[in-house]
Design a protein around this nucleic acid. Structure first.
Lengths: 230, 230
DNA sequence: TCAAAAGTGTTCACCGTACACCCATGG
DNA sequence: CCATGGGTGTACGGTGAACACTTTTGA
């Protein structure tokens, strides 16, 4: 293509929108904010922002996530660019969507309040502005695929967790019921968890063992050809 | 985020780059052009172009593909946005990458010549401009996943094809050897091909049956819960 | 002693994989 | 009649799915 002159080409606003997933022990949730500027002021929205000239999309997503949650080093994955011409009635904007996984327990509630943010179950999403509902649907599909092939689900759990919590997590992501015995033996066969000598006694008299994800072991096994698959 | 003024935000050039896959019966190939403008004039490159104000990314990719190949209705999938700040030394450009599947036989050779285009085996890719090699790697991964879960491989074959051709196609995409007997019984068990009463006698004296992909049957089965999986 | 959750094994059906021989044909 | 590629079936091991009872402990 004879594109010998960059300067004659159209430029567009490039936005980044983030689907922030969290898990409260029961449901997979998404953090939404109430939009406080026009257009669509007062409606629920994903968090987002615009790409600056001197940053990558990844940097922009990190910046936006840090701004809202106070976290750095959040697990993120870019998954799709949305480009319908009139998707944002304010101005022609193309938006690159990321999803992020955060541990809901660590999450700073002050920041959430400051932005009128709220967690919503993915099964009870409100109507969102623009094409944000479509982004959420797309993000959930990608999350399902990714959590089935990479051990990223742990990003949504506390450092120490019970098998029950892990199972509930997968059930809420995959939107299915799983058999306890099959699930646990599957997880155990992967051999990437450490069972601690510690028990969680919140939810039962007997108490259930806590586990952690053994990252080093996982990477070592991966180098030896191991493939994570749930 | 208090983004109450779109006009103060940076705008960027948004490009679309296309990885065009083809299959010649032996190897998976990619169509590249020799770039005829600066920067990097004379180097091999993916085809690409810039998004115009009034089109979607999908439209832009279609337009670019049509321009180079003369085809409409090409199978395409968007897979990633590349945004390193200096990826294009000419100007800050974010590029959204698509891959496309075309039937190499139908492909218009005149257009190819007009653009100094050439097919290259994916196993013998030249060095490409910018981050295009990285885009190609990413595209191949996505293609492998997608051809394993959707019947899109047929886009790369003639309307009528032999089982041998189909097997070679999967072997070249997945970069593995497959067992003939297992492959054929797998394909037959899917029950989405029609075996014609016609034979291809190009490659043997006995001749081998030609098949076509039964799109209607596939969609019907899909509605009934069938999942394509190779 | 009872309620509530934790923890644990076996069986069976199906699928992926390894593997080898006969068939049809044109030269 | 022979060389070449086309076409077909079986046996085995491993994995996913169904399925129920015992243990622990605090109230």
């Amino acid at each position: 293509m004879n594109l010998n002159n960059y300067s004659t080409e159209d430029k567009v606003l490039l936005a980044v929108d983030c689907i922030i997933f969290g898990f409260d022990g029961e449901d997979l949730k998404i953090l939404l904010i109430k939009r406080d500027f026009e257009p669509e002021r007062g409606k629920w929205s994903l968090i987002g922002g615009f790409l600056k000239r001197h940053e990558t999309l990844h940097d922009a997503a990190s910046r936006i996530l840090h701004y809202l949650t106070g976290f750095n080093d959040i697990y993120m994955e870019q998954f799709y660019a949305f480009s319908e011409v009139n998707r944002d009635p304010g101005e022609r904007t193309v938006s690159v969507a990321y999803y992020a996984l955060i541990n809901i327990e660590d999450h700073n509630k002050e920041l959430t309040q400051q932005f009128s943010a709220n967690w919503f179950s993915v099964s009870r999403m409100p109507h969102l502005i623009f094409d944000h509902n479509q982004m959420v649907d797309h993000a959930i599909k990608r999350l399902r695929y990714r959590t089935s092939t990479k051990p990223i689900g742990f990003e949504l759990l506390p450092e120490k967790f019970t098998m029950k919590q892990l199972q509930k997590l997968y059930e809420s992501i995959l939107n299915t019921k799983l058999d306890k015995r099959n699930f646990i033996s599957k997880i155990n066969s992967l051999d990437i968890l450490i069972r601690l000598d510690e028990k969680d006694t919140e939810s039962s008299k007997r108490g259930s063992f806590l586990h952690t994800f053994d990252k080093d072991k996982y990477y070592k096994k991966t180098n030896e050809g191991f493939v994570f698959k749930i």
